Amino acid sequence: MATGGRRGAAAAPLLVAVAALLLGAAGHLYPGEVCPGMDIRNNLTRLHELENCSVIEGHLQILLMFKTRPEDFRDLSFPKLIMITDYLLLFRVYGLESLKDLFPNLTVIRGSRLFFNYALVIFEMVHLKELGLYNLMNITRGSVRIEKNNELCYLATIDWSRILDSVEDNYIVLNKDDNEECGDICPGTAKGKTNCPATVINGQFVERCWTHSHCQKVCPTICKSHGCTAEGLCCHSECLGNCSQPDDPTKCVACRNFYLDGRCVETCPPPYYHFQDWRCVNFSFCQDLHHKCKNSRRQGCHQYVIHNNKCIPECPSGYTMNSSNLLCTPCLGPCPKVCHLLEGEKTIDSVTSAQELRGCTVINGSLIINIRGGNNLAAELEANLGLIEEISGYLKIRRSYALVSLSFFRKLRLIRGETLEIGNYSFYALDNQNLRQLWDWSKHNLTITQGKLFFHYNPKLCLSEIHKMEEVSGTKGRQERNDIALKTNGDQASCENELLKFSYIRTSFDKI
Rank of each mutant, 00 (worst) to 15 (best):
residue 320 T to I: 13
residue 125 M to Q: 06
residue 63 L to R: 07
residue 33 E to S: 08
residue 108 V to G: 02
residue 280 C to A: 00
residue 170 N to L: 08
residue 149 N to I: 00
residue 32 G to R: 08
residue 164 L to I: 07
residue 108 V to P: 00
residue 204 Q to C: 00
residue 122 I to C: 09
residue 103 F to D: 00
residue 316 P to W: 02
residue 322 N to E: 00
residue 199 T to G: 11
residue 240 L to S: 07
residue 198 A to M: 11
residue 316 P to D: 13
residue 48 H to M: 13
residue 233 L to Q: 06
residue 258 F to A: 11
residue 97 E to S: 06
residue 159 D to R: 10
residue 60 L to M: 11
residue 181 E to N: 14
residue 131 L to V: 12
residue 122 I to K: 00
residue 268 C to G: 00
residue 333 G to Y: 14
residue 56 I to V: 04
residue 182 C to L: 03
residue 145 R to K: 02
residue 95 G to V: 02
residue 57 E to L: 06
residue 178 D to G: 12
residue 82 I to G: 03
residue 155 L to F: 06
residue 132 G to N: 05
residue 180 E to I: 10
residue 201 I to C: 13
residue 264 C to Q: 01
residue 77 S to E: 05
residue 209 C to Y: 02
residue 107 T to M: 05
residue 315 C to A: 03
residue 224 K to H: 05
residue 109 I to N: 00
residue 32 G to L: 14
residue 110 R to G: 11
residue 293 C to V: 05
residue 315 C to W: 00
residue 277 D to Q: 10
residue 203 G to V: 09
residue 318 G to L: 11
residue 281 V to M: 02
residue 175 N to M: 05
residue 303 Q to V: 08
residue 86 D to A: 03
residue 82 I to K: 03
residue 169 D to F: 11
residue 292 K to P: 04
residue 312 I to S: 07
residue 45 T to V: 13
residue 198 A to L: 09
residue 86 D to P: 00
residue 97 E to M: 09
residue 300 G to T: 12
residue 145 R to E: 01
residue 34 V to K: 10
residue 262 G to L: 03
residue 249 P to F: 02
residue 236 H to F: 02
residue 335 C to A: 07
residue 101 D to L: 15
residue 189 T to N: 05
residue 276 Q to N: 03
residue 214 H to T: 09
residue 173 V to Y: 12
residue 71 E to V: 04
residue 188 G to Q: 14
residue 162 R to D: 09
residue 287 Q to F: 14
residue 305 V to M: 11
residue 134 Y to H: 01
residue 182 C to G: 02
residue 150 N to R: 13
residue 207 E to T: 10
residue 131 L to Q: 01
residue 128 L to V: 02
residue 210 W to E: 08
residue 181 E to R: 05
residue 30 Y to M: 01
residue 88 L to T: 00
residue 79 P to L: 03
residue 144 V to E: 00
residue 152 L to C: 13
residue 63 L to V: 14
residue 242 N to W: 14
residue 320 T to E: 12
residue 305 V to E: 04
residue 38 M to P: 01
residue 293 C to Y: 02
residue 279 R to S: 13
residue 59 H to Y: 04
residue 111 G to D: 00
residue 155 L to S: 10
residue 326 L to V: 15
residue 274 H to A: 10
residue 256 R to K: 09
residue 248 D to C: 02
residue 63 L to H: 10
residue 67 K to I: 06
residue 117 N to S: 09
residue 103 F to G: 00
residue 213 S to L: 12
residue 258 F to W: 08
residue 198 A to C: 13
residue 227 G to Q: 14
residue 326 L to T: 05
residue 310 K to Y: 11
residue 97 E to K: 06
residue 42 N to P: 03
residue 107 T to H: 13
residue 94 Y to G: 04
residue 140 T to W: 05
residue 31 P to A: 06
residue 134 Y to V: 15
residue 87 Y to A: 01
residue 297 R to E: 10
residue 244 S to P: 03
residue 38 M to W: 02
residue 331 C to V: 03
residue 92 R to T: 02
residue 249 P to R: 02
residue 65 M to P: 15
residue 242 N to T: 11
residue 84 I to S: 00
residue 223 C to A: 01
residue 65 M to K: 04
residue 57 E to A: 07
residue 224 K to N: 12
residue 83 M to I: 10
residue 293 C to I: 13
residue 223 C to S: 02
residue 244 S to T: 04
residue 120 L to T: 02
residue 216 Q to A: 10
residue 115 F to V: 15
residue 106 L to D: 00
residue 52 N to T: 12
residue 209 C to H: 02
residue 234 C to R: 01
residue 73 F to S: 03
residue 40 I to W: 01
residue 32 G to V: 12
residue 98 S to A: 06
residue 247 D to T: 06
residue 109 I to T: 00
residue 37 G to S: 05
residue 62 I to A: 01
residue 269 P to N: 01
residue 235 C to L: 01
residue 88 L to W: 01
residue 102 L to F: 15
residue 262 G to P: 07
residue 59 H to C: 12
residue 179 N to S: 05
residue 278 W to P: 00
residue 158 I to K: 03
residue 134 Y to S: 09
residue 130 E to W: 06
residue 115 F to L: 09
residue 104 P to W: 00
residue 333 G to S: 15
residue 228 C to T: 01
residue 249 P to T: 09
residue 104 P to Y: 00
residue 82 I to Y: 13
residue 77 S to H: 11
residue 277 D to Y: 15
residue 100 K to C: 14
residue 310 K to C: 06
residue 36 P to K: 14
residue 315 C to N: 00
residue 173 V to E: 12
residue 99 L to G: 02
residue 41 R to W: 10
residue 329 T to M: 12
residue 168 E to L: 12
residue 222 I to Y: 09
residue 32 G to Q: 10
residue 283 F to S: 07
residue 99 L to I: 07
residue 275 F to V: 07
residue 96 L to I: 12
residue 201 I to Q: 14
residue 85 T to F: 03
residue 170 N to S: 09
residue 264 C to G: 00
residue 237 S to P: 11
residue 93 V to P: 00
residue 241 G to D: 02
residue 55 V to A: 04
residue 33 E to M: 14
residue 212 H to Y: 11
residue 208 R to K: 03
residue 58 G to T: 00
residue 303 Q to C: 15
residue 31 P to Q: 01
residue 256 R to N: 06
residue 79 P to V: 04
residue 284 S to I: 05
residue 291 H to C: 02
residue 129 K to H: 13
residue 172 I to P: 03
residue 178 D to W: 14
residue 235 C to D: 00
residue 146 I to N: 00
residue 145 R to N: 02
residue 171 Y to L: 04
residue 224 K to W: 04
residue 308 N to P: 01
residue 58 G to I: 00
residue 92 R to S: 10
residue 45 T to A: 06
residue 70 P to Q: 13
residue 56 I to C: 01
residue 58 G to E: 01
residue 286 C to S: 03
residue 214 H to Q: 15
residue 125 M to K: 00
residue 262 G to M: 05
residue 97 E to R: 14
residue 160 W to F: 12
residue 204 Q to M: 06
residue 236 H to E: 10
residue 142 G to R: 01
residue 208 R to Q: 15
residue 306 I to K: 02
residue 314 E to N: 14
residue 40 I to V: 13
residue 101 D to T: 08
residue 269 P to G: 03
residue 261 D to S: 06
residue 62 I to Q: 00
residue 248 D to R: 03
residue 261 D to N: 03
residue 168 E to I: 03
residue 298 R to D: 05
residue 238 E to V: 04
residue 271 P to L: 04
residue 317 S to D: 09
residue 317 S to I: 04
residue 284 S to N: 05
residue 99 L to T: 07
residue 98 S to T: 07
residue 197 P to L: 07
residue 295 N to Y: 13
residue 269 P to S: 03
residue 329 T to I: 05
residue 73 F to A: 05
residue 162 R to V: 09
residue 214 H to E: 07
residue 162 R to Y: 05
residue 118 Y to Q: 07
residue 154 Y to S: 11
residue 133 L to K: 00
residue 215 C to A: 06
residue 161 S to T: 12
residue 286 C to I: 02
residue 116 F to Q: 04
residue 245 Q to E: 14
residue 323 S to G: 14
residue 139 I to P: 01
residue 112 S to T: 10
residue 71 E to G: 01
residue 321 M to Y: 11
residue 230 A to E: 13
residue 304 Y to L: 05
residue 81 L to Q: 00
residue 234 C to I: 02
residue 161 S to W: 03
residue 218 V to Q: 09
residue 164 L to K: 14
residue 283 F to R: 12
residue 211 T to H: 07
residue 240 L to M: 05
residue 205 F to R: 06
residue 56 I to Y: 00
residue 203 G to W: 11
residue 213 S to Q: 06
residue 49 E to H: 03
residue 324 S to A: 08
residue 209 C to N: 05
residue 301 C to Q: 15
residue 336 P to H: 12
residue 121 V to S: 10
residue 163 I to F: 09
residue 255 C to V: 00
residue 159 D to H: 15
residue 30 Y to S: 15
residue 34 V to Q: 02
residue 32 G to H: 09
residue 36 P to Y: 04
residue 329 T to C: 05
residue 253 V to Y: 11
residue 49 E to K: 09
residue 90 L to E: 00
residue 64 L to Y: 03
residue 196 C to W: 01
residue 147 E to A: 15
residue 176 K to P: 14
residue 328 C to N: 00
residue 114 L to V: 08
residue 122 I to Q: 00
residue 144 V to N: 02
residue 171 Y to T: 02
residue 98 S to V: 01
residue 314 E to F: 01
residue 117 N to T: 05
residue 304 Y to P: 05
residue 266 E to W: 14
residue 97 E to F: 13
residue 151 E to R: 05
residue 309 N to I: 03
residue 60 L to F: 02
residue 218 V to I: 14
residue 267 T to A: 10
residue 110 R to V: 05
residue 336 P to Y: 09
residue 223 C to Q: 01
residue 93 V to S: 02
residue 206 V to K: 13
residue 286 C to Q: 01
residue 253 V to M: 05
residue 65 M to H: 13
residue 150 N to I: 12
residue 32 G to E: 13
residue 86 D to N: 05
residue 78 F to C: 03
residue 156 A to I: 13
residue 76 L to H: 13
residue 154 Y to I: 05
residue 32 G to S: 03
residue 239 C to N: 00
residue 265 V to T: 04
residue 86 D to F: 00
residue 170 N to C: 09
residue 319 Y to V: 02
residue 152 L to T: 02
residue 32 G to M: 05
residue 311 C to F: 03
residue 212 H to G: 06
residue 314 E to M: 06
residue 120 L to D: 00
residue 83 M to S: 06
residue 191 K to E: 02
residue 180 E to R: 12
residue 309 N to F: 13
residue 87 Y to D: 00
residue 192 G to F: 08
residue 279 R to P: 00
residue 219 C to T: 02
residue 72 D to G: 15
residue 31 P to L: 06
residue 132 G to P: 00
residue 336 P to A: 11
residue 86 D to S: 06
residue 119 A to G: 15
residue 270 P to S: 04
residue 282 N to E: 07
residue 132 G to E: 01
residue 159 D to L: 05
residue 165 D to V: 13
residue 122 I to D: 00
residue 209 C to D: 01
residue 70 P to E: 07
residue 118 Y to R: 02
residue 186 C to R: 01
residue 109 I to V: 11
residue 248 D to L: 07
residue 67 K to S: 04
residue 105 N to M: 03
residue 208 R to F: 15
residue 168 E to M: 13
residue 200 V to M: 05
residue 160 W to V: 01
residue 236 H to M: 02
residue 253 V to H: 02
